[in-house]
Design a binder for these strands. Structure first.
Lengths: 132, 132
DNA sequence: CTAATTGTCAAGCTAATACTTAAGTATTTT
DNA sequence: AAAATACTTAAGTATTAGCTTGACAATTAG
């Protein structure tokens, strides 16, 4: 999985229209995809199900969610592209499983936020100590 | 910050319309709000900026993002409700800062996913060992 | 072989959303 | 006091997206 942390490219050049801006021309990074994927409650529920109950079929995902197969397939597509889920079709059954590695980008991003913030916090502490 | 992990309540009763379902009547949990907030690249960029550069004003957030103040204010609202950001107005300037505690829900969620998955993985390992 | 099951794909529908503008308020500077 | 600055709020706009239906294909069961 290509690892391009950061939120680059979300701001295109000056826009000419008043409505919602269309998606950036810049390809989405790994982090973009993962956070986008988990930004939806249904998709989070899918990942949760796969982590706790293991590999299940598309139908088995759809049932408790009370949504159509087609809706599930759409979500799975997003999850697969993000690297959080892997699916495999054997016969007419597609089995879905969670990819734990997919969570690493999130952890890294959070970790980075923390350490950058901590660094600033510490610097402030030093400044205050200096003034005494 | 109320801590209600999990993705409950995203699936309402049988729907009567074909369009996108409207938001669940059930109140969004902390995790819902945090993931929803970070599901947007602009909001992630805001959090990144606050973590690395420290407290900045609304204007200072808007400038590099090349979006209007009003847009930033909308994003800040989402971020504040999620607990990731805190703002404070002194005079005419509103200063925004990152709340590191807001990241904990994410870490917990990811952590849970990992351990549940790992548990299943280990169980499978035991089964296979048993068969030999 | 037919019927049932599982999934796929395309198109449509409706709600959400990320931005804008415009008008206004409050504070600070000149 | 007037002008400039920083923000706020409401309403509008265009795009995205999460769901559905309908038609179809492939596999399995009877």
């Amino acid at each position: 999985m290509t690892d391009r942390s950061g939120s680059g490219g979300h701001r295109p050049a000056a826009r000419l229209s008043k409505g919602r801006p269309s998606e950036s021309a810049r390809p989405a990074s790994g982090v973009d995809r993962v956070f986008h994927a988990l930004g939806d409650p249904t998709r989070r529920a899918i990942v949760e199900k796969l982590s706790s109950e293991g590999p299940v079929s598309v139908s088995q995902l759809a049932a408790p969610l009370l949504i159509t197969l087609a809706a599930v397939v759409q979500h799975l597509q997003v999850l697969e592209v993000s690297g959080l889920v892997r699916t495999e079709k054997v016969g007419r059954v597609r089995t879905c499983r969670m990819e734990p590695a997919g969570l690493m980008l999130i952890e890294q991003w959070v970790s980075e936020r923390r350490s950058l913030w901590q660094r600033r916090f510490d610097r402030l502490g030093d400044l205050l100590a200096e003034e005494e």
